[in-house]
């Protein structure tokens, strides 16, 4: 099952490699991993998307908690939550395609953030499924490159990871 694990870790050199190393050493799967400092500069917030049986997810959370650099951890998928991913995608947009692509971007509530005679660079934010759907609707349009940030997640309502 797909899980989104959110962590607060000490903002120290090596913390990221400890976490990445744990996943590779124990054969756990990482679908995406994002990390950046928080409003408290001594902490980083990390979101890991992983897959596994309940037993494996239990081990992943326990092993992560065991790392000295991990301050707190929550499996967001255990409760109501919001997930977002950012994608920057550059496509060929020439002649009649220019209008069509622009329309698709509007439908998906994306923004065109850079333009040349032959390309658009599009910014799109949303859950993973929305980004996937956008790429699918671009069939016939040539994608030059696409960059995805990986998922960031947060709990809904009053719950918080602090």
């Amino acid at each position: 099952m797909r899980r989104i694990i959110s962590l607060l870790v000490e903002n120290e050199a090596g913390a990221l490699s400890r976490i990445a190393g744990l996943f590779s050493a124990r054969g756990y799967n990482i679908e995406s991993l994002t990390v950046a400092p928080t409003e408290d500069e001594s902490l980083s917030r990390m979101t890991i998307v992983t897959r596994g049986s309940d037993a494996i997810i239990e081990q992943i959370t326990k092993q992560l908690n065991k790392l000295i650099d991990v301050v707190r951890l929550v499996d967001l998928t255990e409760g109501r939550h919001i997930e977002r991913e950012l994608m920057l995608i550059k496509v060929i947009a020439e002649r009649e395609e220019r209008e069509e692509v622009k329309r698709l971007v509007d439908i998906f509530r994306g923004r065109i953030i850079d333009v040349t005679n032959s390309t658009y660079t599009i910014e799109l934010t949303g859950p993973v499924g929305k980004l996937d759907a956008f790429i699918e609707t671009l069939q016939g349009v040539e994608v030059v490159e696409a960059v995805r940030s990986g998922v960031s997640g947060i709990s809904r309502g009053d719950r918080a990871l602090r």
Partner: peptide, 11 residues
């Protein structure tokens, strides 16, 4: 004493 030892190999 280590929670990750519990349930690792057997339930």
């Amino acid at each position: 004493v280590d929670p990750s030892s519990i349930g690792k190999n057997v339930s």
